[in-house]
């Protein structure tokens, strides 16, 4: 029982991190129909910014976190303006290649600006917590809590506010949205900013556990991408559930089947889903999207 609780909490927390990055994939895919391969690096780079603000600028943690989130929002807007906007009327291929270019750029600029030494960030809450008679890292609970709150807030904003409805309309049919008077370019910019913000939250949450290196986002993005496909590309609940399913599957699989295949589980499931249900658990079949 102890082991199951420990594995369950760790798997859920890792799944939540995949979910934050997966949501970034989905929101941008829905808005502009491309996959942003720099999404993992949008977690890594803000983590470096946070480490810099904490150590070099010696800002208090709450101020440094707010600063990092603001940086991410601005970065998302700049990303949209410099990378997506000039290519918006081209096919999806140049845009995807441009996002890969941004990924390489961010890794190397992090290396140049912050150096090769990994950075350490203290956790938001230190130590371990006892649950059902066993110990669990408190930071895992912080990750689960923050992600759940963020998802609920996102649901309320998208479902209950005017800007949320405008964002959804733009994602569903950009031309129709424009005809309805929605400033679609602005909505797309907001989507990029929000995706960058989600990435930054993921980076801030995992940095105390994993340390900050230029490769921080690489494996996370790969798993998040698999989770997005498993959940159904384009589906917000699909991305979240796919990510949590993946996090739990790989940790229980590694513990009870074989640790040698821990990373393989994600991709075996991905291949199985692509063969048996190509649209994913919650995705629409091709041609059915409104």
């Amino acid at each position: 029982m102890d082991v199951v609780v420990q594995l369950g909490v760790a798997g859920l927390a890792i799944g939540m991190i995949y979910a934050l990055v997966a949501l970034g994939f989905v929101l941008i895919f829905n808005a502009v129909n491309v996959v942003n391969f720099a999404q993992g690096d949008l977690a890594m780079f803000p983590a470096f910014v946070l480490a810099f603000l904490l150590t070099s600028s010696r800002l208090p943690l709450p101020v440094a976190i707010v600063g990092t989130l603001l940086f991410a929002v601005v970065f998302g807007l700049v990303f949209n303006r410099l990378v997506y906007h000039p290519l918006r009327n081209r096919s999806f291929v140049p845009v995807i290649i441009a996002t890969i270019g941004v990924s390489v750029f961010l890794k190397n600029i992090a290396l140049v600006l912050f150096g090769a030494d990994p950075r350490r960030i203290d956790p938001l809450i230190h130590g371990v917590v006892r649950i059902f008679g066993t110990t669990v890292n408190a930071q895992y609970l912080v990750i689960i809590g923050v992600t759940v709150v963020l998802l609920v807030a996102q649901y309320l904003v998208f479902d209950r506010t005017m800007i949320g409805k405008q964002l959804q309309t733009t994602a569903q049919n950009r031309e129709m949205a424009a005809l309805l008077g929605i400033r679609t370019d602005r909505m797309i910019a907001v989507t990029f900013a929000y995706s960058a913000l989600l990435g930054a939250v993921a980076g801030i949450l995992v940095a105390p556990l994993f340390g900050v290196t230029p490769e921080l986002g690489t494996l996370i993005a790969l798993k998040a991408f698999a989770a997005t496909v498993i959940g159904g590309f384009g589906s917000v609940p699909g991305a979240v559930l796919g990510a949590v399913f993946l996090g739990l599957t790989e940790i229980f699989g590694a513990a009870y089947v074989s640790s040698d295949y821990k990373d393989a589980f994600a991709f075996v499931i991905l291949i199985a889903v692509l063969l048996l249900r190509p649209q994913g658990f919650f995705g629409e079949k091709v041609g059915q999207k409104a």
Partner: peptide
């Protein structure tokens, strides 16, 4: 034995398995 991929971020599974 238990293995992990370079850069893996969570070892709960491997450590739990080895502990048992």
């Amino acid at each position: 034995k238990a293995s992990y991929t370079t850069g893996d971020k969570d070892y709960t599974a491997q450590l739990s398995s080895l502990r048992s």
